[in-house]
């Protein structure tokens, strides 16, 4: 039997790991993976809340989010590839041309 509060905790941990990864790593692909991890954390939370309130909407939403996450992952990776072709590096610090 899975505990609802435990699932929420797993989701929160996943999200926290993603945030930390995004903030600390400089590699664009790793940063992108970190955002995916945050995404999954939220997804787990959605399902946990669905269980908590006895409502299938949470799971239905989860399925939708999975599809969107897949599409978004393809798009994001394509952007990363394009960026790499431009500069030949994956260092996020090199992409700071919007500095005020």
């Amino acid at each position: 039997m899975v505990n609802g509060a435990g699932m929420s905790l797993v989701g929160a941990v996943l999200f926290g790991l993603g945030v930390v990864g995004f903030l600390t790593r400089r590699n664009l692909i790793v940063m992108f993976l970190s955002t995916e991890v945050m995404f999954q954390g939220v997804l787990v939370n959605l399902i946990a809340m669905g269980m908590r309130w006895g409502d299938l909407q949470g799971q239905a939403f989860g399925v939708f989010v999975l599809v969107i996450a897949a599409v978004e992952a393809g798009l994001g990776l394509a952007i990363v590839v394009m960026l790499f072709r431009r500069r030949g590096t994956l260092d996020a610090e090199r992409w700071n041309t919007l500095r005020g």
């Binding site: 700071n96 500095r99 005020g100």
Partner: peptide
């Protein structure tokens, strides 16, 4: 205010968090 605009993604993310 323009000093806040560093152009670094992680800086913005930090601010958001």
């Amino acid at each position: 205010l323009r000093g806040m605009q560093q152009g670094s993604m992680q800086g913005y993310a930090m601010g958001m968090v």
